[in-house]
Design a protein around this nucleic acid. Sequence first.
DNA 1: ATACTATATTCATAATCTTGAATATAGGTG
DNA 2: CACCTATATTCAAGATTATGAATATAGTAT
Lengths: 128, 128
Amino acid sequence: MDVYETQSNFLKAISHSARLAILDILRDGEQCVCHMEATLNLRQAYISQQLMVLKQAELVDSRRDGLNLYYRVIKPEVFTVLETIRSLTGIPSKPPKHKHANTDCPCPKCSIEITTLTTSFALIQPNK
Amino acid sequence: MDVYETQSNFLKAISHSARLAILDILRDGEQCVCHMEATLNLRQAYISQQLMVLKQAELVDSRRDGLNLYYRVIKPEVFTVLETIRSLTGIPSKPPKHKHANTDCPCPKCSIEITTLTTSFALIQPNK
DNA sequence: ATACTATATTCATAATCTTGAATATAGGTG
DNA sequence: CACCTATATTCAAGATTATGAATATAGTAT
């Protein structure tokens, strides 16, 4: 496969608002699906679909802990790309870490960190 | 428009092999369309279409000099993105500058620089 | 086993992107 | 003005992506 093809495939994997939002969540470390669901206010199946795209692109991987699956970014350079894009599009650099946008996520990890919760995020609209 | 939307639109503009190839050509400064045509071995109308996409994304701009239109990248950060993507996809960093892949470009600029020509590039296949 | 929870997969349709073909236009030249 | 050259635009069909809905599965707990 052509080098530009390889690169465009990679870019295509992240050229999607929901996937960008997911990656942004993973910026602060692994998170379970239920957490993304609660934070992004998107249906579970939908998030799972997008996670599969990221996984196929070998950008993320998951780890099971009991009932929950924790996803994490395995190619940290992707954050460099996101930061550059952010600056390119004139979006203020790193927004405040959004560990948890609400308290609806019941996973153990969230329950613990819930105490330090402060910020909330705008919902993303599916597609444009 | 949502921030992630803005970012994904930007990414979509560059998630295309022909456009990546064009940007790569523009890495070394402005170039006329005829030059890209000769270098990439793609039809003029096609290249023009892709240039319009890049232009709409405000990634490039053009300057006329006589009969020729010279395009240049106006957001250099895009090269940072390309470099990072290159490393992400395991493609050896900057390839040799490909000023001119062949001698078929008749524009004044090419005629002058033609003397230092050495490298050639693999053709890109439209789409995947 | 049964039931429950968290997450994945399949399917169908709509929306968007890709690309070739034909054609138009703008600037330059005689 | 007539004609050439370089580049842009329009159109249409095919390919790919996005996404909702329904459903499946894997791990846990009883």
